[in-house]
């Protein structure tokens, strides 16, 4: 019951937040110089004031702000994000086309970084002054400070150009068509380099954070208790310490959800990955306002859903969260 209640409250908050994002989005569009009538008339090759007013009347642009806002909210709730004149198709359709590729890339990178990062952090926390611990710290710092486009390009030069293990760009090879398995293997081959590039940033964050929290947890009283019970090192570290050190890492992972768009832009551009990042990049260059706003709205949606999932995961890990509403 408590769980259902918590989910319901979270979803309500998420809804309010989303509404705020929509209003803000619309306000921005409204404030920008020029309107849809201008861009339509531009595509027609110009129009006089009378025609413009006619267009405005047709599209309801002459109505008061609040009425326009209301109809915009109604449209967005029906997932109608407008029409892109640049791509000549509805924005929502455009986003849904590009979404799977980005989700595949970002979620794989996140998952990989989370598992490997936590493992490295836990490992190096056990001997914080050991050689391997310093190596992990250095590696993490390197991964974090190296710009994505630089490390991505280096990987490309190394593993696509000199040692031709992986394809240079894209997500699939057009010549491979046929059974599911072959296509899947092809996509995985295309994924390796971009996933490694993207994961290296996350990996640094997760390994540093889990190393720090793990070290703190290992010095706590209940770990001393666990030792005094005669438990094995494995039970002490992976049962008693790990579960306690996970909360900050999960919180951080939730925040990293925003990287679905921001982090992916660079990586997708370097590897010509046909995802949301590439779409965002292109639409900004082309000043395709409806698409940009659609992506903005969509990334807000992803972040909100991500935070919802984070909250619920934290409840699983830490019983103290459960009673605080």
């Amino acid at each position: 019951m408590a769980l259902l209640y918590a989910i319901a409250t979270r979803i309500m908050y998420a809804g309010i937040l989303l509404l705020a994002v929509i209003i803000l989005n619309f306000g921005m569009m409204h404030l920008a110089p020029g309107d849809v009538a201008d861009s339509i008339s531009q595509s027609m090759g110009g129009a006089d004031e009378e025609v413009l007013n006619e267009i405005r009347a047709t599209y309801g642009l002459d109505r008061p702000f609040i009425v326009q806002l209301g109809s915009y909210i109604g449209k967005v709730l029906r997932f109608d994000l407008g029409y892109s004149f640049f791509y000549t198709q509805p924005v929502s359709q455009l986003i849904l086309q590009k979404l799977p590729a980005t989700l595949l890339l970002v979620l794989t990178a996140q998952f990989l970084a989370l598992i490997v990062g936590v493992f490295l952090g836990v490992y190096s926390a056990q001997r914080p002054n050991g050689l391997s611990s310093h190596f992990v710290s250095f590696f993490a710092l390197f991964g974090y400070s190296a710009p994505v486009f630089w490390s991505g390009l280096l990987l490309l030069i190394g593993f696509s150009l000199h040692i031709q293990w992986f394809p240079v760009a894209g997500m699939r090879d057009v010549t491979i068509e046929g059974n599911f398995l072959e296509e899947a293997i092809d996509i995985i081959r295309h994924m390796v380099l971009p996933v490694i590039t993207l994961a290296s940033i996350f990996l640094a964050l997760y390994s540093r954070l889990s190393r720090a929290t793990m070290m703190e947890v290992l010095g706590s009283d209940y770990i001393r208790t666990a030792k005094s019970k005669g438990l094995t090192d494995r039970e002490i570290i992976y049962k008693h310490a790990l579960k306690n050190s996970l909360s900050p890492v999960i919180t951080l992972a939730g925040l990293q959800f925003s990287a679905v768009v921001s982090g992916a832009i660079l990586v997708e551009s370097v590897f010509s990955w046909p995802g949301l990042g590439t779409l965002a990049f292109e639409s900004i260059i082309a000043r395709d306002t409806p698409t940009i706003l659609g992506i903005l709205f969509f990334s807000a949606l992803v972040v909100i859903v991500g935070n919802l999932l984070t909250d619920l995961t934290l409840r699983l890990v830490d019983p103290r969260v459960r009673t605080n509403g």
Partner: peptide
């Protein structure tokens, strides 16, 4: 440890694992 020789500590508030 915990079997033939056991120990209890000064800080009951923090000596048990919270999770």
């Amino acid at each position: 440890r915990g079997n033939e020789i056991s120990m209890i500590f000064q800080e009951p508030m923090t000596s048990l694992n919270p999770v």
